[in-house]
């Protein structure tokens, strides 16, 4: 049996479609339920629903053999696992955003508000810039509005929230999409189950282009 960690929420819906298209009896994923563990009727797959940022953890420890999670979460977690496929859905961008009229990015002491603390640290380290990183857990856009930070580092999908608050993307840093990840041991010990699934998924992604 293959154990799959899925992120609760928006991503779960797209994942259910993907698994069904790949010939897996994953209809159970579409049912309204409060169960955290679901098995397919043929007992070939067991799905766990976890918080998105916990998907890399479940996969790194090998509790889940594979998982589906956004690249933003992977960048932030820095877990030791295999990144097998770009699934090309849930696309967005990790951006630096702020007030377009101010030259915020060149502030001598830049304050950056973000959920993605590790990713932001790595980004500014690679540029040789010393910045103050302020960890927030939600409503990141509020930080520059209230003067908590100069800019924010966050995912942007449509840009609607930014525009509604007078903010704009200052720089697109990473392209983000959903990724299929695998535990480094499971890929080898359960190759007969995982590899056919990956080639099915590849076909499906190809069709979507």
């Amino acid at each position: 049996m293959l154990n799959v960690a899925l992120a609760k929420g928006r991503l779960a819906e797209s994942c259910a479609d993907l698994f069904i298209r790949c010939g897996i009896r994953a209809e159970i994923l579409k049912e309204e339920t409060r169960k955290l563990v679901l098995e397919t009727p043929d007992k070939k797959f067991r799905f766990f629903f976890v918080k998105p940022s916990d998907v890399p953890t479940y996969v790194e420890y090998g509790i889940a053999d594979i998982g589906i999670v956004g690249k933003d979460t992977l960048l932030e977690a820095g877990a030791d696992l295999y990144e097998m496929l770009d699934l090309k859905f849930e696309k967005c961008r990790l951006c630096l955003a702020g007030f377009p009229e101010k030259n915020s990015l060149s502030a001598p002491h830049l304050r950056v508000a973000t959920k993605y603390v590790n990713t932001a640290k790595k980004l500014f380290l690679s540029r040789g810039e010393d910045v103050e990183i302020i960890k927030l857990n939600g409503s990141i856009e509020l930080a520059p509005l209230t003067g908590l930070s100069d800019v924010i580092f966050d995912i942007v999908q449509s840009g609607g929230t930014l525009r509604a608050n007078g903010l704009a993307v200052l720089e697109e840093v990473f392209d983000i999409s959903a990724r299929l990840v695998a535990n480094k041991v499971s890929l080898k010990t359960k190759a007969a189950e995982i590899l056919p699934l990956i080639s099915e998924m590849k076909k499906y992604i190809g069709e979507q282009k």
Binding site: E60, Y61, G62, I63, D80, N183, K184, V185, S186, K188, T189, K190
Partner: peptide, 9 residues
């Protein structure tokens, strides 16, 4: 050496 059920070598 990889053993099933243990997530690391």
């Amino acid at each position: 050496g990889l053993a099933e059920g243990v997530g690391a070598p």
